[in-house]
Nucleic acid binder design. Structure first.
Length: 478
RNA sequence: CGGGGUGUAGCGCAGACGGCUAGCGCGCCGCGUUUGGGACGCGGAGGUCGGCGGUUCAAGUCCGCCCACCCCGACCA
């Protein structure tokens, strides 16, 4: 990677993405095909994501725990759809400690089964319910084609698993978590997402209903960015998760599961990034403000650094980095930190020392337009306001971009045309798995979701022409 | 797993017709000059040419086998 400039997005979007992830030092390829190393800068972003989510989970009564990585093979086989969905992509351990295992172990692709097994032991009475547990961990799915963050053999995520006394409660929990994901995406990541329900073909293996937040990437492809499943009594029956109700009658629990993974980092990259590099939303950015000191000689250096230190101390509420490297020029630093997505850059040089000012450059607006010279006095407030402005602007920009690429075709020909030319279709849809398959075959587009927000009324299905009451989004997806 | 491609310094590449000490750019290290949008000079370090085998006086270079990775298809948070 010797060229200074990234491959422009318009030239080759996936090349842009691959270069950026590596150059920004978010992640690197591991020696095993399809595996990645999350580097400190990428992990710092993930930690901020974890924080934002974990706070929301705790606020809604969830607790964290840790379940094992290995799951007996037989567990998976207890739920028919589940095993069918996951068996093609399992990593299986057959040897341990040098000898063949009596029963193969799978490396968890998700933990419904082993958690279900434990819940059946822990839950006896309605008084034990609900159980609201989340775990932060890693899982393995042996995917064919991999991309850093978007699809790797091993990835990091959180998976919540809850058990409830009634179907209504389970559904309420499923929707509550969908709302939490939506809130997180909008208000922390500035990623406008469309919450909705998955179709029968797209739902989680073993779920009764799956919900999703769908985001539009910079190339207009859709990315499923978080999911919440109502598992009904499927896993409760498979794993005997039963409780005695108030009337001393044995009942099966109603369970849910919900997850959001390091894939979301991909969503952030591809929602906000531009040809210059990453743009991180201020609330999640590992570094919110980078300070670049500028000086020509030791005397200037001393004065400038005094100011830099003082300003840095005043900004203690923010994540601030002072780039005091002597071996590269300020111009180099500007480019580098822009590439790495730092939302706000502060330049402090001799002129600023003299005028009690600093220069601020917004990452979301490049060039002179995004640059301003502000007083050192009240800098914390100025910076705080600017970060909020940037946060809001990123969401507004991404929302505008998304809305400009959603269309409402009047017929199937128009539909195909829109998909062909990179857009999403918002259409009346009569649920039908065969028709969904045909559309996928024709256009490569899939039903992304049936949005929670519906216009009401009736219309004719874009494919079958039948009368229907719901609209859906179709798009090509990652 | 089917089709296509690539393996030469940390990264990107050249060398391919067998022939001397395997080059170039970027990066890296040292010294000096620089520093408000990707600095420059001088000096350096760094390679079992993906692996194994064969042909030959001689193999990055020719032949065979193997391995890895990338791209395109069938699966997916």
């Amino acid at each position: 990677m010797d060229e200074k400039k990234l491959t422009p997005r318009s030239e080759n979007y996936s090349e842009w993405y691959n270069q950026l992830v590596q150059r920004a030092e978010l992640a690197d390829y591991a020696p095993v095909r399809g595996c990645m190393v999350v580097r400190p800068y990428g992990w710092a972003l993930w930690e901020n994501i974890q924080n934002a989510l974990d706070t929301r989970f705790k606020a809604t009564g969830h607790v964290n725990a840790a379940f094992p990585l290995f799951i007996p093979m037989s567990f998976l086989e207890k739920e028919k759809e589940h095993v069918e969905g996951f068996s093609p992509e399992l990593a299986v351990v057959t040897i341990g400690g040098g000898s063949e295992l009596e029963e193969p172990l799978i490396v968890r692709p998700t933990s419904e089964t082993i958690i279900g097994h434990m819940y059946s032991k822990w839950i006896q009475s309605y008084r034990d319910l609900p159980v609201l547990i989340n775990q932060w961990g890693n899982v393995v799915r042996w995917e064919m084609r991999t991309r850093l963050f978007l699809r790797t053999l091993e990835f990091y995520w959180q998976e919540g698993h809850t058990a409830h006394a009634t179907a209504e409660e389970a559904e309420a929990e499923t929707l509550q978590m969908l709302n939490i994901y939506t809130d997180f995406a909008l208000n922390e990541a500035a990623v406008p997402v469309i919450p909705g329900r998955k179709s029968e073909t797209e739902k989680f293996a073993g779920a009764v209903r799956s919900y999703t937040i769908e985001a539009m990437m910079g190339d207009t492809k859709a990315l499923q960015s978080g999911t919440s499943h109502n598992l009904g009594q499927n896993f409760a029956k498979a794993f005997d998760i039963q409780y005695l109700d108030e009337n001393n009658t044995l009942q099966y629990c109603w369970t849910t599961s919900w997850g959001l993974s390091t894939r979301f980092i991909g969503a952030i990259i591809m929602t906000h990034g531009d040809d210059q590099g990453l743009i991180f939303p201020p609330r999640l950015a590992p570094i919110q403000v980078v300070i670049v000191p500028i000086f020509r000689n030791e005397e200037e250096q001393q004065k400038v650094m005094e100011t830099v230190d003082r300003i840095k101390a005043e900004l203690s509420q923010f994540r601030v980095k002072v780039d005091d490297r002597a071996e590269v020029t300020p111009g180099f630093k500007y480019n580098e930190w822009e590439m790495r997505g730092v939302p706000l850059r502060m330049e402090i040089g001799p002129k600023d020392v003299a005028k009690n000012s600093v220069a601020l450059a917004r990452r979301d607006i490049l060039g002179r337009e995004g640059k301003s010279f502000v007083a050192q006095e009240g800098i914390a407030q100025t910076v705080g306001e600017m970060l909020e402005t940037i946060q809001a602007n990123l969401l507004a920009k991404a929302t505008k971009f998304r809305d400009e690429h959603i269309f409402e075709p009047k017929n199937y020909d128009e539909f195909k045309d829109i998909i062909e030319n990179n857009g999403w279709c918002y259409v009346w849809w009569k649920p039908n798995s065969e028709n969904e398959a045909k559309i996928k075959e024709d256009t490569k587009a899939t039903l992304r979701c049936i949005p929670m927000e519906q216009p009401g009324g009736k219309g004719k299905c874009i494919f079958s022409g039948e009368e229907t009451t719901e609209k859906a989004y179709f798009a090509k997806a990652y």
